[in-house]
Amino acid sequence: MATKWSYMDHWVTETPQGPLPPSFNRTYMDRYVKQLSALGFQGFDTFFFYLPMLQGMYGSVPAFEHFLQDNGFEKITGIFSAYPYATKHTAPHVRETHDRIVADCEYTLRGIEGLAGVENFIVMPSSTDWQTEPVTDDKIKIMADLWNRVGRITLEHGLKTTCHFEFWGAIRTRPQLELFFEHTDPEYVYFFCDTAQHTIAGVDPVQMFRDYKDRCTGFHFKDTKNVDTTGMYRTAPDPELMAPDVERWFYPMGEGGLVDFPSLMKEIVASGYDGWLTVEHDKAELGGGTYAEATCLAKWYIDNVLAEAQREAEAAL
């Protein structure tokens, strides 16, 4: 099996105006793509809100994809969309806001027309836990209804709606995840396995994949060094950056974190999964790191450590 690796775009680089995303200008964006290309990434995942910027810089989003392809990429593989902060206009657990959310999703789908074939429409299925509390079964079912609805629409455009669960979201524990998947239609709603987020929430990502592999359409390979055992997931307004005890939640693979990536890799091989594998770095600059170095080390780890796990698993088949 040939693995296909994509990169999830959180990159920050040094500019004359301080550290900013490479969308700073076209030159920076070109260099960013070349850097990923040099390491051998073939897929590119991005956020919905970058689409207008890409259009501005390259003339159109497909023109940006052509630039990726000129540099050895296959295509844009995933688009990430989310409503992390609930407002009166948009909140997945509030049914009255669903029409608006669906309309937004349709707008995003129009923004990626003409691309070679984005596969995943990645969503955060809920807003922050603290805004959703109390998290009832009913609210989880309401959220399931929303994504069933969205999933049907994206599938018409060839994209699978796939759910990425934050440790601070309202669907975070294993029972909540099970209830959510029970109420979503396997034909319309898929599972996206973020190794670090699940680990922080006390959910074993490898077991999660084992149990939901039939619905799994992607991964964020990232690591963490902390499990949230003190309810930091409830920190308002934002647990990801403001948790009292943890300044940095996410780390690249191979830096002594809690996730057992070789085991996951073996599980992936054994399952016959043939979709994209994605490296995500989030806040890599905290504590003095850089995105470029984190990306090199992650890809080095893939080619030198995970490749070995993959070979072992393939031999065992």
Binding site: T13, E14, R31, K34, Q35, L36, A38, L39, T290, A292, E293, T295, C296
Partner: peptide, 8 residues
């Protein structure tokens, strides 16, 4: 930014 220079 050494890593970026190497990659580019």
């Amino acid at each position: 930014h050494p890593a970026e220079s190497t990659m580019v």
